[in-house]
Simulated assay, not measured.
Amino acid sequence: MTAEIERSAHAYCPACNPDPGMGEPVTALCGATHPFWGRRERPVNNCPACEAVVTESVYPCGHTGGER
């Protein structure tokens, strides 16, 4: 994984990560695992791999984007 993706804002499945705590490891839709440091409303750099997965009707984990 490139450093650019490492620094990007990732998207997470809301069903798999309903209320992550600060610093808790979470797995992004692209498969990258990082400590959770809060959700950003308008991130400067989005992860392109996560953005591609968000357009799918079902995430790799089996959930849909609307599930909670």
Rank of each mutant, 00 (worst) to 15 (best):
M1K: 05
T2D: 15
A3Y: 11
A3H: 09
E4A: 09
E4D: 14
I5W: 06
I5P: 02
I5G: 03
E6Q: 11
E6V: 03
R7C: 04
R7I: 00
R7S: 04
R7Y: 04
R7T: 05
R7P: 01
S8A: 15
A9I: 00
A9W: 06
A9Q: 00
A9G: 10
A9C: 09
H10E: 09
H10W: 09
H10P: 07
A11D: 04
Y12S: 04
Y12R: 02
Y12A: 01
Y12M: 06
Y12L: 15
C13F: 08
A15P: 03
A15H: 11
A15R: 10
C16Y: 14
C16E: 15
C16A: 15
N17F: 06
N17Y: 11
N17M: 01
P18F: 12
P18D: 10
P18W: 14
P18E: 10
D19S: 10
P20L: 01
P20H: 11
P20K: 06
M22Y: 14
G23V: 00
E24P: 00
P25M: 08
P25F: 03
P25C: 01
V26H: 01
V26T: 01
T27L: 09
T27M: 15
T27K: 14
A28I: 02
A28R: 03
L29C: 09
L29T: 08
C30K: 04
G31P: 13
G31L: 13
A32W: 12
H34Q: 11
H34M: 12
H34R: 14
P35V: 09
P35C: 00
P35Y: 03
P35M: 01
F36H: 05
F36P: 01
F36T: 00
W37F: 10
W37D: 09
W37Y: 03
W37C: 03
W37S: 02
G38Y: 12
R39I: 08
R39A: 06
R40M: 04
R40Q: 13
R42W: 15
R42M: 06
P43L: 02
P43G: 02
P43A: 06
V44A: 02
V44W: 03
V44M: 02
N46K: 01
C47F: 06
C47N: 07
C47Q: 04
C47A: 07
A49E: 07
A49R: 05
A49C: 07
C50P: 04
E51V: 15
A52R: 14
V53S: 01
V54I: 14
T55W: 07
S57P: 14
S57Q: 15
V58K: 14
Y59L: 08
P60D: 10
P60K: 12
H63S: 13
T64A: 09
T64H: 01
T64L: 06
T64S: 11
T64W: 03
T64K: 05
G65H: 04
G66F: 07
G66H: 13
G66L: 07
E67C: 07
E67N: 05
E67W: 02
E67K: 00
R68M: 05
